Computed example of a mutant assay.
Amino acid sequence: MASLHVYSVLVVLFLTCGAVMATKENDQIIKENNCETKIGLPCVLEAFTSIFEKGSISNKCCCEHVVLGKVCHSALINRTLENPLFKDLRPATIIAKSIQTWNNCLALIDSPSPSA
Rank of each mutant, 00 (worst) to 15 (best):
G55W: 11
A47P: 01
V66N: 05
G40L: 06
E36R: 14
I39D: 03
E36W: 04
P42N: 09
S56F: 07
C62G: 04
L68H: 04
G55V: 09
I39W: 02
C62N: 03
K60D: 11
C62Y: 06
T37M: 11
T49I: 12
E46R: 04
T49L: 09
L68Y: 03
K60P: 00
I57C: 02
P42A: 11
C61Q: 02
E46T: 03
F48N: 09
E46P: 08
L41Q: 13
H65T: 04
C61D: 06
L68W: 03
L41P: 03
T49Q: 15
H65D: 04
C63T: 13
I39A: 01
C61A: 07
L45D: 08
I51W: 02
T37L: 12
V66H: 06
K70V: 10
L41R: 06
F52W: 14
E36H: 05
S50Y: 03
E36F: 08
N59H: 09
H65I: 01
G40K: 12
S56G: 14
L45H: 11
S58F: 01
L45S: 08
E46D: 07
K70M: 11
V44P: 00
A47Y: 01
E53D: 11
H65R: 12
T37C: 06
I51R: 00
G69D: 07
A47R: 11
K38W: 01
K60E: 14
C62I: 00
E36V: 06
H65K: 07
A47L: 12
V44A: 03
I39Y: 02
E64S: 13
C62D: 05
G40Q: 12
F48A: 12
T49P: 04
T37I: 10
L45N: 10
I39P: 01
F48D: 01
G55D: 13
I57T: 10
G69W: 07
L41T: 10
I57Y: 03
V44E: 07
E46M: 11
I51A: 02
K70A: 08
E36A: 05
H65W: 15
L41V: 06
G55I: 10
H65A: 06
S58G: 01
I57P: 09
L41A: 05
G40V: 08
F48Y: 14
I39V: 12
